[in-house]
Design a protein around this nucleic acid. Structure first.
Length: 547
DNA sequence: AAAGAATGTCACC
DNA sequence: TGGTGACCCTTCTT
């Protein structure tokens, strides 16, 4: 039999004998799913006496519904309304363990998303001693309560024509947000003055994987792209310089094409660090804008290095992660193949690995095995993570990979934000919230959603100073802010479910007129809607009839 | 309304 | 090791 693919949309045709007096199906498509498994596949049926009788005629053809995941009858995976029913033959889609489905997964029904607690460890090595002496005082002893608003407004910006792949806030100019997309476009937006936005389409020719502002000249943007180049662009003029090109001879076929993924800037050393899809790290001197030194193999040869992060406190520490299932900690003074300080093993691809933003002493990773991992101290035992938190952020080739991001404003370095893959049935709508997680406990502190937003938001960034969250979801960018400053309240023990824009939903849908003029495409819900055309873009409804 | 396309990772040979 | 095909709770266009 030819291999069956998931695309097979129609039920398998089964030739089954039927009782001679059975009714004809009024409609094959409307046939209810059979609650008795395997019934129709039996070659024999019972007569009234319980004897097996071979049926010869007439033969009718029925279309039997089978599960689209396992191709077996008796159940069907997929959306029932706004609730997704898992295939029971598969491991749980959330925690990946067999024996239950997502609906009954213990990590779903509790607010602690399945924390595997850290074993107690003794602090005894010299590095940890230094940490305790020099860095620990920076961290408050008592964790302050998170300040998360009860209500938020959400602005929607649409100027990318392909899905958003990365977001970056300007470090000092408060309202400036950078965005990159799959097509290679780079957007610079002032989200308070929506007319002030620029989209640069000629910097890169495909996916912008990472962007950074130049810390010494914050009008300059560095970007690494799958086109194999790293660019430095003037934010105001869009004038761009290519600092490095891994494909100087152009397209010579997929096997030779090289792409740039992970990127970060080390201001102390004045270098841009960038890594490719073959396991190599490159350094570009920011003064001369030229490559310095040779490429260094930092991950398995031939594997993508998707993330680089320089330690915010100790400039000689570098963190990398990639498709070889490892995050690795490096000493910049001794960067050579195989010389990493620590190799942090994961079960799947590591989408991101970040030092904590203030002390730089913790590490947070996002892996495609649906787990966040936290190492509480890079100066302590690094053999196993301090905590693993089960969270739904699966890989899907059509989505930008999820990355858990620290809240740079949280002095206790324990709040992280990450989009959620699996949907929640919210009043009949399948919504994908954006989760705020206390990574010291695994508790889901808050989940943010909007009935108008039915798409998944894999890209999220918290503002370095303000209470602003930027999300990239498909081609749109969302700016979430507290609805009223006065409504800010301290976080209690229970998680908050923050729903935005609920009342406006139907009104907005009626107003839409389908115009695709994109000059005025930002709207803040909760305030007056500016125009019909902008409202149209507020309603990216899915076609599954979930609303 | 439903099909088609785009197209990373992983297991398997 | 490199090629192949299955997998995936997508999202948008035709």
């Amino acid at each position: 039999m030819a291999p069956q693919t998931r695309r097979m949309a129609f039920p398998r045709v089964v030739v089954a004998p039927r009782e001679t007096d059975s009714e004809q199906s009024s409609s094959e498509e409307e046939e209810e799913e059979d609650p008795l498994p395997e019934y129709e596949s039996e070659p024999e049926v019972e007569n009234g006496n319980g004897d097996k009788v071979e049926q010869k005629a007439p033969i009718t053809i029925t279309l039997k519904k089978v599960c689209k995941v396992c191709k077996k009858a008796g159940h069907e995976a997929g959306f029932k309304g706004a609730t997704y029913i898992d295939c029971p033959m598969k491991p749980c889609f959330l925690c990946k363990m067999p024996g239950h489905t997502t609906m009954t997964c213990p990590h779903r029904v509790t607010t602690e998303h399945g924390v595997i607690p850290a074993p107690h460890r003794n602090a005894c090595n010299p590095l940890e001693y230094v940490f305790e002496r020099q860095l620990r005082p920076r961290i408050p002893l008592i964790k302050p309560a998170y300040v998360i608003p009860d209500q938020v407004t959400c602005g929607v910006i649409r100027y990318h024509s392909r899905r958003v792949t990365c977001l970056e806030f300007h470090p000092t100019k408060n309202n400036i947000l950078l965005s990159g997309d799959k097509k290679g476009q780079v957007g610079v937006l002032d989200y308070y003055k929506t007319s002030e936005k620029m989209v640069y389409g000629n910097i890169h020719s495909c996916i912008v994987n990472n962007m950074r502002f130049n810390p010494t000249n914050d009008g300059a943007i560095y970007a690494a792209s799958s086109d194999g180049t790293i660019s430095c662009t003037d934010m105001e003029t869009g004038i761009s310089l290519s600092l490095m090109n891994l494909n100087p001879d152009g397209w010579q076929g997929p096997s030779s094409w090289r792409m740039l993924y992970g990127m970060d800037i080390n201001p102390e050393k004045g270098v841009v660090l960038v890594a490719d899809n073959c396991g190599f790290l490159y350094m570009v001197d920011m003064r001369s804008n030229s490559k310095s030194g040779e490429a260094i193999l930092i991950h398995k040869k031939g594997s993508k290095v998707v993330g680089l992060h320089c330690n915010p406190i100790q400039p000689e520490l570098l963190l990398s992660c990639g498709n070889d299932h490892f995050a690795r900690l490096w000493d910049m003074r001794r960067l050579e193949a195989g010389s990493s300080l620590f190799d942090l093993a994961h079960r799947r691809v590591v989408n991101s690995a970040y030092f904590s933003p203030l002390s730089g002493s913790k590490i947070l990773t996002t892996s495609q095995d649906n787990r966040l991992r936290i190492w509480d101290s890079i100066f302590s035992n690094m053999d196993t993570p301090s905590r693993e938190i089960v969270h739904s952020h699966d890989f899907n080739r059509h989505l930008t990979p999820f990355r858990a991001e620290w809240d740079p404003k949280d002095p206790s370095e324990s709040l992280a934000v990450i989009g959620r893959y699996i949907s929640e049935n919210y009043n009949g709508a399948a919504l994908h919230p954006i989760d705020f997680i206390d990574i010291s406990t695994g508790q889901l502190v808050a989940e943010v959603m909007d009935p108008n937003i039915t798409t998944i938001s894999p890209v999220n960034k918290l503002h370095p100073q303000d209470d602003v969250l930027a999300s990239g979801s498909s081609r749109s960018i969302f700016i979430w802010r507290p609805k009223e400053k006065s409504e800010l309240v301290e976080q209690k023990d229970e998680r908050k479910i923050i729903v935005c824009g609920r009342a406006e939903k139907k009104q907005n849908r009626k107003l839409g007129n389908g115009s695709d003029d994109s000059d005025d495409d930002i709207t803040l819900k909760g305030k007056n809607v500016k125009s019909k055309k902008s409202v149209t873009k507020l309603t990216p409804y899915s076609r599954k009839g979930k609303l």
